[in-house]
């Protein structure tokens, strides 16, 4: 497996449900994916849970999913949600909850 993404998929402005392209891709392929957040400016609870789910599924298939162009509002949602697999894709290694 290389680190280079073979497929770049742009996410919608509101991520509130599964993105079919990605679903299909995960079923039919085993190469890396880059999710482009450039247009995504709102994410719902369902959207977060779906992201978590596809990351878990991708991990089980050894597919690497990467994120790009995350806007601060969305990045903050990830930080607050403390979902481990999502934060790992964002580069975190541990301490997903804030600590002082």
């Amino acid at each position: 497996m290389t680190q280079t993404p073979e497929k770049v998929i742009s996410l919608p402005s509101i991520l509130d449900k599964p993105v079919n392209d990605i679903e299909k891709y995960l079923v039919n392929n085993d190469c890396n994916l880059l999710l482009d957040f450039i247009n995504c400016n709102f994410i719902t609870v369902d959207g977060i849970e779906w992201l978590e789910e596809i990351l878990v599924r991708a991990n089980s298939k050894s597919i690497k999913i990467m994120f790009a162009n995350i806007q601060p509002d969305i990045y903050k949602v990830f930080k607050i949600s403390r979902i481990e697999v999502i934060l790992k894709v964002c580069g975190a290694t541990q301490n997903f909850a804030p600590f002082c």
Partner: peptide, 12 residues
């Protein structure tokens, strides 16, 4: 967990 996800989304 569901409360945390909701609080994260609420920030927007």
């Amino acid at each position: 967990r569901q409360a945390r996800l909701a609080s994260a989304v609420f920030i927007q």
